[in-house]
Design a protein around this nucleic acid. Sequence first.
DNA 1: AACAGCACCTGTAGGC
DNA 2: TGCCTACAGGTGCTGT
Length: 269
Amino acid sequence: MPELPEVETIVRQLRRSIKGGIIAGVRLYWRRSIEGCPREFCRSLRGMTVARISRRGKYIGVECSGGAFFTIHLRMTGKLLRELPVAERKHLRAVFSFGDGTKLHFVDPRKFGRLRLWPCRRRACPGLGPEPLREATVAAALRKLKTRRPIKGVLLDQAVLAGIGNIYADEALFAAGISPRTPAAALSDGQVLRLSRSVPRILHAAIGRRGTTLRNYRTLAAERGENQEHLYVYGRAGQPCFACGATVEKARIAGRSSHFCPRCQKTRE
DNA sequence: AACAGCACCTGTAGGC
DNA sequence: TGCCTACAGGTGCTGT
């Protein structure tokens, strides 16, 4: 569920909320939410002070004094909540208790999310591509592509760019006027330029609106994002394109549902 | 090498 | 109301 803007929103709130906190204990309610040894995860973090919160792609990073480093990936339905609503109790997978008596709840109905302890921060999350928040970075990544795979699938490939998911891939391709089916290596210079600009623009705008809440995503304080009010194609199949009035289509491309305007988005310029 | 398909899970929406 | 199916924002493994 959460993509880069949602994770960035949560990370900014975590910095204000739990940085400096002492982890009094970690309690698990679903052991498989931990990648690796659950017992070691809890034991390693007990008593540590939260020193630094970071984001890499869709991963939340938590660095503790003493060097312990762990990541949280929310996958489809994971949430981090300071307060646990009664209705979420049955989806509770882990709880961090802090020295001041407050808590951080990891809630995840579908149980896809993962917490993982890493031996060191530098070697965490291998294989991720660069952050797509600057035009020059995105342009460099796109220019390297030699594959005939559809650009939609390439944008979702975390080894190419880290953090883009299904919503923002569709929105960025619409903003750039590019068909999601276009083979990546066939993008013209103009298309690469437009996509390199639209990706960071779409992501920054979504961060400014604290992410997109379609269903599960909530911030640390359980608030909804506002970016769902600003989507041009995602979730709008059958409705008129805001730009040209043609009907927005939905099709399965690269194994994922893809939303696009057949008139505004071209394979070739 | 590149890519498709499925597995991981539960909840919800829609058809009948 | 209930049963069934399809689908959901992500990733990682397996097999072709």
